[in-house]
């Protein structure tokens, strides 16, 4: 008892002292992907990093309520949606052109408000014991025509990458096409796994569904557990293969911009990039990183994604959510 009280007293006193050489990072990324990078950064620079974990949207909401009093220096997010929201709020400092040099140019927003840290692709996951890839459509827009898949399709309506994909569809094909696609999909009675891609692929393993709209790396991860789940890409340039970045930006509230800059540079450095690929199977944003053989090479996979300005996605997310709400899906 005494010990608990002492420990809590110590915690109470520790408070939030902002000494020089400290950095506070808010991140929607999972701890497994963050912790090793942070530890290495602390060792090599001597800068102490405090990390606050949460989901992207929780942290965006927190940053908004905090306003100018926010203790955060860096936001490191999981989706262009969250990054775009913060950029639109004017929360990010504009990055120098030197900082974005050599970083996957297709995924750097024109206003340089944030820096891409990894790239992932939307794909269709399928159970090879049930589905022949030759029977799958060329375009995700034709998925609603696959009446044989009625009740056997999984998707994650609440998941940020799904909404980014829908926003991309609006940007490329317009609102009417997207609305019709959603209605067509709804007629096939897809199962909504909310935010849980892992739950969805568990359901595919258990035979609840045969195909699922997801991010490429989830398939790589469950393949380690020997689940019967394979990757299907639609035809080149199809919106169903949309490439989508994670990224980080420096907040205007930052009291230690020099350290924040160094942190962003570390995220796009060779060590961090190799690490992201090896544990999370996300594509690096810089060249010369060796990839596992189970993944298509970056030069190949990036050709399959349509070309869209990354700033265009966040602008269409609200429309995407309105369409989902109108369709009764959200």
């Amino acid at each position: 008892m005494t010990r608990i009280l002492l420990a809590s007293a110590a915690l109470l006193l520790s408070g939030t002292s902002l000494a020089q050489g400290q950095l506070t990072v808010y991140t929607g990324r999972a701890k497994t992907f963050v912790e090793p990078i942070v530890q290495q950064f602390e060792r090599s620079t001597g800068i102490k990093v405090n990390v606050r974990y949460g989901t992207d949207s929780q942290l965006v909401a927190a940053l908004r309520e905090e306003g100018s009093r926010s203790p955060a220096d860096v936001f490191w997010g999981n989706s262009v949606g969250a990054l775009g929201e913060l950029a639109e709020d004017g929360k990010f400092l504009k990055l120098t052109s030197a900082m974005v040099r050599g970083v996957a140019p297709d995924y750097v927003p024109d206003d340089r408000s944030w820096l891409p840290t990894t790239v992932r692709f939307r794909v269709l996951a399928y159970n090879p014991n049930k589905i022949k890839p030759g029977d799958l459509p060329d375009s995700v827009l034709d998925l609603p025509k696959m009446t044989s898949l009625k009740g056997r399709i999984g998707w994650t309506v609440t998941y940020p990458s799904f909404q980014d994909f829908l926003a991309g569809m609006i940007a490329k094909h317009g609102e009417a096409t997207t609305k019709a696609w959603l209605e067509g999909m709804k007629a096939l009675q897809p199962k909504d796994y909310k935010t849980s891609n892992v739950g969805m692929l568990e359901a595919m393993r258990a035979g609840e569904i045969d195909v699922a709209l997801t991010n490429h790396y989830y398939i790589q991860r469950v393949n380690r557990l020997n689940y019967p789940v394979e990757t299907y890409f639609f035809k080149n340039g199809d919106i169903g293969n949309l490439g989508n970045a994670t990224g980080a930006g420096i907040l205007k509230t930052s009291k230690n911009r020099a350290a924040a800059t160094r942190f962003l540079q570390a995220l796009t450095g060779k060590d961090a990039q190799t690490f992201f690929l090896s544990v999370n199977f996300e594509y690096p944003v810089i060249g010369n990183i060796i990839q596992p053989t189970t993944m298509l090479p970056y030069s190949d996979v990036t050709k399959r994604s349509p070309r869209l300005d990354p700033a265009v996605l966040p602008k269409n997310i609200e429309k995407a959510q309105r369409l989902l709400r109108e369709a009764g899906l959200l």
């Binding site: 999972a30 692929l201 991860r221």
Partner: peptide
Amino acid sequence: PTGFDTLARNVWTYTEEAQ
């Protein structure tokens, strides 16, 4: 407090990532 970590948080984040 930033950096304060709990059991529940770890369980949640790792299961969400299929780890």
